[in-house]
Write a protein that binds this DNA or RNA. Structure first.
Lengths: 71, 71
DNA sequence: AACGTTTGACTACTATAGTAGGTGGCACTA
DNA sequence: TAGTGCCACCTACTATAGTAGTCAAACGTT
């Protein structure tokens, strides 16, 4: 399983666990709403800079976003 | 410390630990020689796709590349 | 039925990741 | 001296990450 797919799944799970919409998370992370959607649909491979701001917005360790066994 | 910097340091340490030159690592990972140099100099933020191929080439877990306490 | 919220999907754009070729410097070895 | 490997650095290019606006489908709520 590609790391991009692992990330996509964990991102969605963590976002939903915090009760945030894609748009709310995007605002918190300083990203675009459409882009968060693309990440969850595995259409984009985020840079580590983006990984960092998303982890910060979700208040989790970056590791949780790319763990293959789920966050 | 920015995640990009953590990655840069770990990449160089792991590459040197395996005795590879930047060019040898680039060839193994299917990347450009100059680009590996830029990553180690913190001039670029790699995507998770790139993270994955580098980890594969170095035969380490992706987590080791972004660990803040060193690989 | 109608309403608001969320998300997928599309187009078009800008910023940056990643490629390719080169120069020059530094260390080492013949 | 010459010759190699390694790396910083440069320019220019192509591919893709990331932004912005919009439309419509799916959902629950009243």
């Amino acid at each position: 399983m590609r790391l991009r797919s692992v990330f996509a799944r964990n991102l969605r799970l963590l976002r939903q666990a915090t009760g945030l919409s894609q748009e709310q998370l995007a605002d918190l992370a300083g990203l675009d709403r459409n882009y968060v959607g693309k990440l969850e649909r595995e259409e984009n491979s985020p840079t580590v800079d983006t990984l960092e701001v998303l982890a910060l917005a979700l208040q989790v360790d970056v590791e949780k976003l790319i763990r293959r066994n789920g966050p």
